[in-house]
Structure formats: C-alpha cells, structure tokens
Design a protein around this nucleic acid. Structure first.
Lengths: 253, 253
DNA sequence: ATTCTGTTGTTACGATCCTACAAACTCGGA
DNA sequence: TCCGAGTTTGTAGGATCGTAACAACAGAAT
C-alpha cells in the first residue's frame, strides 16, 4: 500500500467511488483478474465486502463478473473505464445544467447594482478578465507586471476586440508582456509611470470602456485575489481616479 | 420547487455537490444574485447554513462573494461553471488512472484461463464486442437480428479489420443489417438457416478467429446480457459447436 | 443616552444517513 | 463433519441535514 495508492484512491473517491470500490478496482487491475479472496489478500478490504463492492462496480460498468464458483472478477480496460466514467459525468452535467439554464434569470445586459465582487484564485480571475474584455465596445486598458497573467485566452480576446475596432492600451514595465501585443493594429503599449511603486503584490488591472474594471493583487502566500465591478458608480469612480492619476488619456486621445 | 428541480439536485449530487450546495447554486442562478436571506427564501436551505455552503461553492469556483453587509453572492456563468467542473473531473480522472496504469498487470496477449465472462447492459456489451472484433487476425463472424445492435463503432471496427484482410461473415435475417456491410470488400453476408427459431430473445453473436466468442440475449425486461470467452477451451468448444450446426464453413471456405 | 427591535453572521448540537468494518449465518463440496 | 464461499445482519464513525442559540450591529423609539 504505497503512498501513491492512497492518492489514487482519494482521486477515485472524488470521482464518486467509495474507497472500497477504488481499492477493489485498483487491485483487480494489479491482478488482471481474481476472486474475492485474491482481492482481499492484496487490499485491506474485508473479503465479505468484496462481493457487494464488486457488484456495485459492475453496475458502474467498471468490471465484469464470471458466474462460477468461486466468482471471478475482471476489470474492464482502463480506456473503457475512463470512457464510461466520462460519459456518466457528461450525462449528469447535462441533466443538472439544462435545468438551471431553464430557470435562470436572464442576465441584465446593463449591470445597475452598486456591486463590487471578489474573485479568488488565478484560474477564476483569468475567466473573469476574459469575460469583461470580451464585452468591450470602445476601449480596453490592460496592465500587469507578470507575463503569466496574460493567458492565451486573454491575448486572444484582446486581439479579437482590437480587430473589432476597440482601442487597446497595454501597460507593463515587463518587456515580454508588451511584446505579446505590439504587433497588433490599434494596440498601444506603454510602461507605467515611474512614481508607481512596482511592489511585488500588484497583480493585474483591466478597464473596459467606461464602465467595467478589475484589479487584482497577489497575497502573501502567492495566491491572487481580484475585485471587479461593472456598470456601477464604483466602477465609474475608480476608472476616473485611475485616469486622473495617470497620463493615460494623452496616449489614448 | 418543481419535480424537475429535485432531479437536477440529484444530478448535482452525483457530480459531487451536497444537496444544499446544489440548491444554493440553482437558487442564485434563478435570482441572478442575492444575499443569504434571498437564497433561504426561495429554497428550503436554512439561512444560517447558506453562509458556509456558499463558501464551499466559492472554493469550487462556482460563485463569487461580495464583501459587504449583507454579503451578496453571485454565481459564475453556466459555461464557466461547466468548464470548471469538467476540468476538475479530468484532473481527478488523470490522477486516478495514471496510478492504476502504472501498477496494472500487462494483459497477457494469450488468454489462457478457462473463463467465461458475463457483461450486462447494451453499452458495455457494445464495448466488449468492439474489443473482441479489433483483435481479429483471421476471420470475424458477426450476427444479430436487430440493427440497433450494430453501433457505429462496431461497423467501423469491422470495416477496419476487413481492410486488414480479415474475412468477415455477417449473419442476419434483417436486410438493414446486411446492407450495412454489403459494400465492403472481403465481407460476405448471409441469412441464418431456417431451422433456427428466430425468437425475440436472441441478441447478437460474434466469433473472432478460432478463439473468441460473444453471445448475447435479450432479457424479459428488454435489457441485454452477454457472455464471452477468449482463448479458452469453452470458446473452442462453443465455436466448433456453432460451426458444426451451421453451414458456415461452406461460405467461408 | 438608553432601550427596544430586527437583521446579520457565527457557532453549537442532535438527528439522520451512509460508509467502513466485523461478526454471524447458510450452503455445498471434499 | 469440516471448510471455504457467499450472504446477511449488526455496529461504530463521519458527514450532511436541520434546528437553535448567540453576539454584533443598526435603526427606531423612549
């Protein structure tokens, strides 16, 4: 029972199996095939439990049963098992989200509430940035120190918007970031004003038109947290503040 | 609280959420956004529980939190939520199966054990049929009454094997089944001998080379059950039985 | 200023359900 | 009769569900 195995068991549990089910499934792949006793001998699953656990695995389509005495079990191939689980997942997801979709509130295109939202974690902030940028009609301001904060999806979205005639301003003191965008028509790059302290906790900033803004910081533990707002007075004020404190308009015109 | 909603909640539970998490997530999509009280008002989740449940949903990346008083919650878009869950699933599946793959018994190309295996349900039998057919080196016999027992994957596999020089014999009294294969080089189609009673419980039959065989029947409730064997004496005997009782060899030569 | 009232958010706790685990028991063959 | 295979029953522990109590706070009334 290596340390890796318990991780694999945990992963199977998160996929919806019980720990016994995971252990029996793994054991049968180790063995090729075997009886309840064989399985019990190489796992800490009691023999008397193997029968019902194997039955449950058969229901899930992860192993086959040999009707004989003693009963023998045979796992399906890994590819087949993966495909079976994946299909089940997709089916469930469709069922779940179809319903939510049918009852969900149509998102008001114009955000009217005075809301500032918090988003934690890189990945989700990436998503939110793309979401905001893709709504740009007039202009985009995007800035960050760190090249890894410019994901492919973000770069793609900016290119697409620029092609649609949206003015884009990229602000970074990192050359690699500026370079990613310099070849695009309608994109202006610049370095941030020197008076801005380039501390290592700044994350990224995104301004869309005159109504949406996102601002992220890097926490002490290295994780990223962002706040954003769209169509609110807060967004207005923050954007105006930003523009007043900079010489951005001299660049964008 | 419609009857459909409970089904959606069940689906979310199978995706790994608790019922409270599912209900809060659905409610927030209904509402667009809202406070703990808003959510409690439209669900049977107690208000005091909404806070911790929402926190857990935030950890999963399914909603965002507005730090204010009262706290407001906002669900991420359905697309983003689906993508997040899908990524999590793929990650877990990879972790789980990578380990199993690293410890699994290399499948002995020559099956030596005297095993007859049982497979229940259409889909899994489809998989097993494809698996067996794809190992054909010399010849394939495939028969069924029902066109729906010839899936795309099965037809594809047979075409691929036929192209590789494997002799194929398709047996069906149903013209639609025979037609699917008649255009392929190296494929012979025929109707079963009249003396075979065409009862409605017969499913499909597949013979591969001289060592593998699968035979399925349709249960009273309409579900399909198959037995199969590969490289065993059983397989030998059954295949010889089959050939002796028919005039197959006169067709295949 | 003080009291009252209502809301928010936190915490605690019993009930309930499911899994993990351990025994009993039945049955058939040597 | 003995022994192993397989089934059934029972119990402990953990997570979720559901209720309730609580402190902190804000606004209204006194």
């Amino acid at each position: 029972m290596t340390v890796d195995e318990s991780e694999a068991v945990d992963a199977f549990e998160r996929l919806g199996l019980t720990s016994y089910e995971a252990k029996v499934f793994i054991a049968l792949h180790r063995l090729g095939s075997g009886t309840a006793r064989d399985v019990a001998n190489v796992t800490d699953v009691p023999r008397s439990q193997v029968y019902s656990v194997a039955e449950s695995l058969e229901d899930r389509g992860l192993l086959e049963v040999q009707q004989s005495s003693p009963i023998r079990y045979r796992p399906v191939s890994l590819d087949e098992a993966q495909e079976t689980l994946r299909n089940r997942f997709e089916r469930e997801q469709e069922r779940a989200f179809d319903y939510v979709d049918s009852v969900k509130e149509e998102p008001t295109t114009e955000e009217t509430q005075e809301d500032i939202w918090t988003v934690r974690s890189r990945e989700r902030i990436d998503n939110r940035v793309v979401d905001l940028l893709s709504q740009a009609d007039d202009r985009i301001i995007f800035g960050t120190r760190l090249p890894e904060f410019v994901t492919d999806a973000i770069e793609e979205t900016i290119r697409e918007r620029a092609a649609a005639g949206v003015g884009v301003l990229i602000i970074s003191r990192t050359e690699a970031v500026r370079e990613s965008f310099e070849d695009i028509d309608g994109v202006v790059t610049q370095t941030p004003p020197a008076r801005h302290k380039d501390d290592d906790r700044s994350g990224r900033i995104a301004v869309v038109d005159d109504d949406s803004l996102l601002l992220s910081v890097v926490d002490n533990d290295g994780s990223e947290t962002a706040i954003w707002s769209s169509g609110s007075l807060f967004a207005d004020v923050l954007i105006q503040l930003l523009e007043a404190s900079d010489d951005l308009e001299s660049t964008l015109g």
